[in-house]
């Protein structure tokens, strides 16, 4: 499953990363090396094996429906890259 510059471009867009043309080829090469190593997984006989998402198979603890979190506006807005009137600012979003 070799990946080329086009696949890199598609995946980079999904991940919102910018890959310049100059680095694309070297990057695909690297990724192919990694995926080549990862492809050893195909050797495994996993028929009838349930995927294991967590090492310990326990269930989700549930929280009571209570308001416990404080208003943190004054802590978080000052560390935001851009904010105004209590809102985070981004370039205009067109729907």
């Amino acid at each position: 499953m070799a990946i080329d510059s086009q696949v890199v471009a598609r995946v980079a867009h999904l991940a919102r990363l910018q890959v310049d043309d100059g680095e694309s080829e070297a990057l695909s090469e690297r990724l192919n090396e990694i995926l080549g190593m990862v492809d050893q997984l195909q050797q495994a006989d996993v028929s009838d094996v349930e995927p294991l998402a967590h090492p310990l198979e326990v269930s989700q603890p549930l929280r009571d429906d209570r308001v416990t979190e404080p208003d943190v506006r004054d802590k978080v807005l000052p560390i935001a890259p851009a904010s105004e009137e209590g809102c985070f600012l981004v370039p205009r979003v067109i729907e």
Binding site: E84, C87, V93
Partner: peptide, 14 residues
């Protein structure tokens, strides 16, 4: 996403 009152930008209220 709030589009008014942010002079051309978008305000995010979470």
């Amino acid at each position: 996403s709030l589009h008014e009152d942010f002079h051309g930008q978008t305000g995010i209220d979470l």
